[in-house]
Simulated assay, not measured.
Amino acid sequence: MILFISMNIPIVYSSGNIQQKFEEANKMYEQSNYDSAISLYESIIMQGVINSSLFYNLGDAYYHKNEIGKARLWYERAKKISPRDGDIENNLKFVRSFVQEPEEGFLSKAFGFVLINELTVFGSLFYFLFIVGLTINLFYKNDALKLVNSITGTIFILCFLWFLTRIYAESKYVSGIIITNIEARNGPGEDYSVGFTLPEGKKVRILSEKSGWYAVETLQVKPEKILIRGWIPKLSAKKI
């Protein structure tokens, strides 16, 4: 399986030190010095840099260290910034195969295909066009213009509803990645019995947290597709 690596995509920031670190990290990666590359990539992130290429490269470095959980975590974080990037999606498909996780359905893919700020821009644009069309139609009655107004108004409403749904979903549902194989228990503590095992790299929905434990939910594929719930230590998973 060939991984698609965007090692030469430049990151332009006001600080030359960050750009220099990024280039040095890429060199370490190309020399298979993955520990040094990871250290440099993470030091850039600690400075507050949010960039899909940076996250993607960090995921690649973790993949080559066979740390599938952390690799998937950073691929998922990269996807949140660049949801239509083909390289990110290809690598995510590959790491999902390690945990025998089914591909996202059409609705799930479509839901995250557009960023919230893009929805804001699209919605504002079509709202503006709708208002302009209505204003013109007050003075010039025209059937074609009425049709255009109906289309722009409908698109605006769809963008607005999509925007509200995304805001609600992102505030209510928090996803995480299992970064080490872990036994999920039937309560928040080691005293509770083991319910099932979650493999490194598995994606879960974090429902709540209590006393250093996450209540999580995930889809079990075999022997049948069902949602299963359990409790895991917070250190065993990272929020996307």
Rank of each mutant, 00 (worst) to 15 (best):
Leu138Asp: 03
Asp85Ile: 04
Ile116Met: 07
Phe163Lys: 12
Phe163Leu: 15
Trp74Met: 14
Arg185Glu: 00
Asp35Asn: 14
Ile38Met: 09
Ile38Trp: 09
Ile157Trp: 07
Ser108Thr: 15
Gln20Leu: 09
Asp143Gln: 09
Asn8Arg: 03
Tyr140Val: 13
Phe55Ile: 03
Ile9Asn: 13
Gln47Asp: 15
Gln31Ala: 15
Lys93Asn: 14
Val174Ile: 13
Phe98Gln: 08
Asp191Ile: 13
Ile240Ala: 02
Tyr63Pro: 04
Leu119Ala: 00
Ile116Ser: 04
Met46Ala: 15
Pro83Gly: 02
Leu125Thr: 05
Asn149Pro: 02
Arg84Tyr: 11
Ser211Ile: 06
Tyr192Ile: 05
Ile178Lys: 01
Leu129Asn: 06
Asp191Pro: 00
Ala169Cys: 04
Lys225Leu: 12
Tyr140Thr: 11
Gly176Leu: 10
Glu42Trp: 10
Ala110Glu: 07
Thr197Phe: 00
Leu92Trp: 06
Phe163Gly: 01
Ala25Tyr: 02
Gly59Asp: 07
Gly195His: 01
Tyr56Asp: 08
Leu235Thr: 15
Ser43Arg: 04
Glu118Ser: 08
Thr197Ser: 13
Leu158Met: 15
Lys27Pro: 05
Gly187Cys: 13
Glu30Cys: 06
Ser82Val: 07
Ile9Ala: 10
Phe126His: 05
Arg77Pro: 04
Asn26Glu: 11
Gly176Ala: 14
Leu164Gly: 01
Phe22Thr: 00
Lys109Met: 06
Lys203Ser: 12
Val121Asp: 00
Val194Asp: 03
Lys239Phe: 00
Val49Phe: 06
Arg185Pro: 02
Thr120Trp: 01
Phe113Tyr: 10
Ile182Phe: 05
Val174Asn: 08
Ile226Ala: 05
Phe196Leu: 09
Asn51Trp: 02
Ser53Leu: 00
Glu170Tyr: 09
Val99Leu: 05
Ser39Leu: 14
Lys109Thr: 06
Gly153Arg: 10
Gly69Thr: 10
Ala61Lys: 04
Asn51Ile: 03
Leu40Cys: 09
Phe94Asn: 11
Gly195Ser: 09
Phe94Pro: 00
Lys70Trp: 14
